[in-house]
Design a protein around this nucleic acid. Structure first.
Length: 216
DNA sequence: ATCCCGAGGG
DNA sequence: CCCTCTGGAT
């Protein structure tokens, strides 16, 4: 293991190395308003961002406000998003969320995580993506990639996403949370994937817990 | 067959 | 904690 000291210094090293490896790491969903990002993020569950962008391009051309989405109704919305999978629940949640936005938020998307998470279909990952990418709020949500990567690297030890999120927020400076979120996701997809991680070409294997314990 | 940048419900 | 929802890519 390289001689790098504290957890914060290891975190710093990982941040620098991943940023160099993935200089274009960022939210890949296409959106023109917080509302569009909210809908796109709900739609992104269990499918890739490029397929979401394909669907939302035509969806938002027709309806890009809570009121206009509500006018589509369940069946029309389902039809439009069918190719993304999980379409029934996504459509139901989106319509319920739009209804709440109209009734309780003057049709605007709230800019805080707590309010967002009370909306149907909005969990911690969706809420994080919306606040960090639409409102500039520092946030680092733990999805499957972040969870796996953080544990392999030895950055996290807790078993629940909530606690791992706390651990990560402790070792990374607040002003980097949003980017580290995307860096860990990019790394988790391109290199540190679930099945067969490419440890040989991993830019942070020298500080990786799993790399040394499993000596891959 | 298996996995995907999830969320809600039992 | 485990299950289910779903189509598409690999």
């Amino acid at each position: 293991m390289a001689q790098i000291g504290s957890a914060e210094e290891v975190a710093q090293f990982i941040y620098d190395a991943l940023q160099e490896r993935f200089p274009d790491a960022q939210c890949e969903l296409v959106f023109n308003s917080p509302f569009e990002l909210l809908i796109a993020t709900i739609l992104s569950a269990q499918c890739t961002d490029d397929r979401v962008n394909l669907v939302t391009a035509s969806l938002f051309a027709e309806a890009n406000t809570p009121e206009s989405i509500l006018r589509l109704g369940q069946i029309a919305l389902e039809t439009k998003i069918r190719s993304l999978g999980l379409y029934h629940n996504k459509a139901k949640n989106i319509l319920a969320a739009c209804k709440e936005l109209v009734e309780n938020y003057y049709g605007q998307v709230p800019d805080d995580i707590e309010s967002l998470r009370r909306l149907p279909g909005v969990g911690r990952k969706t809420a994080n993506v919306v606040v960090s990418n639409a409102f500039g709020v520092p946030a680092i949500a733990v999805d499957t990639h972040v969870f796996r990567v953080a544990h392999r690297l030895g950055l996290a030890h807790e078993k629940t996403p909530e606690k791992v999120e706390q651990e990560l927020m402790q070792i990374f400076p607040r002003d980097r949370w949003s980017l580290i979120h995307h860096l860990l996701i990019f790394h988790g997809r391109r290199i540190c994937n679930a099945r067969k991680p490419a440890c040989v070409e991993c830019p942070v294997n020298q500080v990786c817990k799993m790399y040394f314990e499993d000596k891959r």
